[in-house]
Structures are given as C-alpha cells and as structure tokens.
Design a protein around this nucleic acid. Structure first.
Lengths: 145, 145
DNA sequence: CCTATGTCAGCACGACTGATATTC
DNA sequence: CGAATATCAGTCGTGCTGACATAG
C-alpha cells in the first residue's frame, strides 16, 4: 500500500503542477488575477479576517495583507474594524467587487466548462468525485505544515 | 448539464489553487524548486527539446530556457545538439541530476503519501481515478490556448 | 510580560513580453 | 524570404522573512 501511495503521490504532484499553469494561462486575459478571484470568492458571503484569508489560501499573512491592499485600492473590498477585537481587520467585498467577481467567475468557469465538456460523463464524474477527497487531502497537508 | 459543468468548474478551480500552494509549502525546504523537479522528471527517460519542456510545463519558451540554464549551472542537466536540426537544443539529465531528483522525489512523495494515508481507501481511489480525467482535461485546456 | 494580529520594508523566484540570432 | 527554435534583456507579479506597532 505504502508503495502505491508514493506512486500515486508522484502522479498527483505532476498533474497538479501542469493543471495550475494551464488554468492560469487560460484565465490570463482578465482584469483579476487568479489569486484575487480566489480571495473575492472567499469573502463573498461574509467578511473574513486577514489571517483567515491567508490560512485558507495557503499563503502567509503579509502576502494576504498585500493582496487585500491591492483589492482595496481597486475598490473591490473594504477593510472594516472588528467590534470585539481591535487588532482584527475584517475584509468585506464591495458591490463593485461583486460585480467584477461575477464577470471574472463567469468567464473562467465558461472556459473550464468548455474543456470539461470534452470529457466523457464518466470522466467528469471522476473529477467531481475527487474534489471532496482532495479537500480532505488538503486539510491533511495543512496539518503537516 | 451545462450548469452543472460551470458549478463543477468553480469547485475545481478553487481546490486546484488551494492544492498548489499547499504542495509548494510542504516541499519548500528542499534544494530543488517544484518546477525544477518537474522538469527533471520530464527528461528522466529521454532528452527533450526546450520547446517541448515549455509546452508540457505550461510555460513559455523563454521561461523554460531560464530553468534549463539554472539546472545546467547546477550540473543537473546538459544541453546537447540535435543531429538532425541545428536549431534544436536537447536537454538531457546528468547522473548528478538523477541523484538529486531521486532524493527530492522521495522526500516529496513521502510527504504526500503521508497525507494520502489519512484518507480512506475510497477517497484515495477517487484521487487516483481522477488523474487520467484531469490529464485529458489538461489536453483540452491546452487546445484552447 | 507574552501572544496574537496586521502592516511595512526589502528580497527572491519565476513568469512574461519584445528583440535578436541562427537554422530550416 | 517566412517560420521555427532558442536565447537574452528587462520588467512585473507575488510569494517570503524579519522587524515593528498595536491590542488582548
């Protein structure tokens, strides 16, 4: 089993790396970077603190701060104080941010969906089925940091 | 169906982005970057031309050249001429490169395997089953560039 | 006092575009 | 001559570490 897992690890690492660059290339022509879209998606429902954004995105807090500042300059988020803890900065998406995000998501998902449509139903299902497993894998990876 | 695909696209994009940062963080303490490991893996069996490396890695040719030059400086690859086409540079892994790659792969796969071992057999299988589908998806994405 | 949170400053890696040989 | 291959030069985005201010 352990040997199978290492072999699977190698294949997973390879496909992951290839995927991320392709997705970035596909999405490159938009106004928002992949990371910015990801951040906006995170705070769409409710404001998040900077440290939470960092943790969820897999980046360090200073990097998250930097992204937030850029988004704020662009008018897509605003930083609000947390009433219960003055150290905390809550990042909230603006109406303008929501509009931009909707456009970006629509275009990106359309691109990806077009590629997905070239797969068989079984292959699409395989991708869908893997997502919860990968999410759990990511939690396991996070715990090892 | 089309709506399902767009929803799937969104979830896939999210998990992908999260995964890549986690994997990079996990692997960060090695001597070789993720990209370097990937390049060395590609040319392990037989030499590849720079343009092929770029295409498979999802990067532009100048970026691939840069990586190759770094690996060459480190003594891990050598650039050899193609007998049939003098424009072409074939990138070949050296014995030293193979040794370094083996160490890096072993450590990285061990990290990933440890995380994978926390998943159920079904979840591991779901990841394994998705890899061929994602590979096909990547080909479809490449065609859209 | 010690920790948590966020920001600032400076740095490094790695991608990109545009321009330039060289060869087909 | 036009297309393909690789390289070089310069730039930029985005992550990091370390230092710091403020609040719990």
């Amino acid at each position: 089993m352990s040997e199978n897992l290492e072999e699977l690890s190698g294949r997973y690492r390879d496909i992951l790396r290839q995927s991320v660059y392709l997705v970035r290339s596909i999405d490159a022509d938009g106004e928002l970077s992949t990371g910015q879209v990801s951040t906006l998606n995170m705070i769409f429902v409710e404001p998040m603190r900077v440290s939470a954004i960092a943790r969820y995105a897999g980046i360090k807090v200073p990097s998250a701060t930097e992204q937030v500042i850029k988004l704020e300059s662009a008018g897509m988020v605003e930083r609000i104080a947390d009433a219960s803890d003055a150290r905390v900065v809550l990042v909230k998406i603006t109406a303008f941010g929501k509009k931009k995000l909707a456009v970006a998501n629509k275009r990106r998902n359309a691109n990806m969906a077009a590629a997905l449509s070239e797969l068989t139903a079984q292959e699409q299902q395989a991708v869908a089925d893997a997502i919860p497993a990968i999410a759990k894998l990511n939690i396991a990876l996070t715990a090892r940091l």
